[in-house]
């Protein structure tokens, strides 16, 4: 009984740690990639698109951070975030490759 409780405390701690890492550094990387994507696809001049994307990025970060602490499965959370990050990275790379930068 006591052993089981100790184990669940440890599991709980690992769960929180994994979610925190997902919510802060991983989230930052994902948000950065998403911001680049938005800055590339927003209409208007490049300067306007950059400002718009940068103004928006905190909303993205906040929503993802909250999701990190509400979704059921930590494993699925990590997989989804890494998958979305890779998709954004690929899109960003292609957009910069085809459009170039100033």
């Amino acid at each position: 009984m006591a052993k089981a409780a100790g184990k669940s405390v440890r599991a709980n701690r690992r769960d929180v740690a994994l979610r925190t890492v997902a919510a802060v550094p991983l989230n930052y990387a994902l948000t950065a990639l998403a911001t680049i994507f938005v800055a590339r696809i927003l209409p208007g001049s490049p300067a306007q698109a950059s400002i718009g994307a940068t103004t928006l990025c905190f909303a993205i970060f906040a929503v993802v951070a909250m999701l990190c602490f509400t979704v059921q499965s930590v494993g699925k959370l990590w997989l989804t975030m890494i998958g979305a990050g890779l998709a954004f990275a690929l899109a960003d790379w292609l957009l910069v490759l085809t459009g170039g930068r100033l």
């Binding site: 680049i36 938005v38 800055a39 490049p46 698109a49 950059s50 940068t54 100033l102």
Partner: peptide, 17 residues
């Protein structure tokens, strides 16, 4: 937002080398 480019310089980097 006031310090946005400090925290998220990638929006500028996306369009400007």
């Amino acid at each position: 937002v006031s310090l946005a480019t400090h925290y998220m310089p990638w929006g500028i980097a996306a369009n400007y080398a």
